[in-house]
Computed example of a mutant assay.
Amino acid sequence: MSETPERPLLRIVRGNPSDAEVAALTAVVAAVAAAPAPQPAPRRTSWWADRASALRRPLHPGEGAWRASAFPC
């Protein structure tokens, strides 16, 4: 097997950074590379396909509520 030299991930072109600065830059690049890809937004159902309108609304009993339920407005 022939060994091909790999390109370095980072290469310092200018300046003289300290070891701490190089370590911080390496940590940031590694964190960005490990971040998951953004997920597409979930598809929303149309108003016509929404089954929530078929559900009964919650009951709110109160003063005279049972009497009022017998006589539609």
Rank of each mutant, 00 (worst) to 15 (best):
A49V: 08
S18D: 12
A33F: 03
A70V: 15
R7P: 00
G15P: 00
G15D: 03
A37L: 12
D50R: 09
A27T: 11
L9M: 07
V32Q: 09
T4Y: 00
R43M: 13
L25N: 01
A31E: 15
V13N: 02
G15E: 01
W47H: 13
A52M: 06
R44Y: 03
E6Q: 13
S69G: 10
P5T: 13
P61I: 04
L9G: 03
A24Q: 11
R51Q: 15
A41I: 02
C73Q: 07
L55T: 05
P36H: 11
V28H: 09
G64L: 11
S46P: 05
R51M: 09
P36W: 08
A30L: 11
A54S: 06
T26P: 00
A70W: 15
S53P: 01
L25G: 03
R7N: 07
L10A: 04
A23M: 03
C73A: 10
G64F: 10
P38A: 12
A35F: 10
P72S: 03
S69P: 00
V32D: 07
V29Q: 04
R7Y: 00
E3P: 00
H60F: 12
D19W: 04
A30F: 05
A68N: 11
N16T: 10
T4W: 01
F71K: 06
A31H: 10
R43T: 15
V32P: 00
A52K: 11
A27V: 08
H60L: 13
E21K: 09
A52N: 13
G62F: 03
F71R: 12
A68R: 14
A49P: 01
A33S: 11
A34N: 08
Q39S: 14
R11T: 01
S18R: 07
L55N: 06
T45E: 15
A34P: 01
R67Y: 08
P72V: 02
P40M: 11
V32K: 11
G64N: 10
R14H: 12
R67A: 15
C73K: 07
L59S: 08
D19C: 04
A34V: 04
V13K: 04
P40L: 13
V13G: 01
V13T: 07
A35G: 06
G15V: 02
P72A: 04
R67P: 00
A23W: 01
W47S: 15
G15W: 01
A37M: 10
P42T: 03
W66N: 12
A68E: 13
V13C: 01
P5S: 14
P17C: 07
V13P: 00
S53Y: 09
L55S: 07
V22K: 09
L59V: 05
T45M: 15
V13L: 06
R14I: 02
A24R: 11
G15L: 02
A70C: 14
A52L: 11
R57K: 13
A68T: 06
S69K: 04
R57C: 02
R11D: 00
S46T: 15
A34D: 14
W48Y: 13
A30K: 10
S53L: 08
T26Q: 08
W48D: 15
V32G: 05
R44P: 02
G62T: 05
W48P: 01
R67N: 09
L9S: 07
P36R: 12
V22D: 00
A24N: 08
G15M: 02
P40W: 04
R43Y: 06
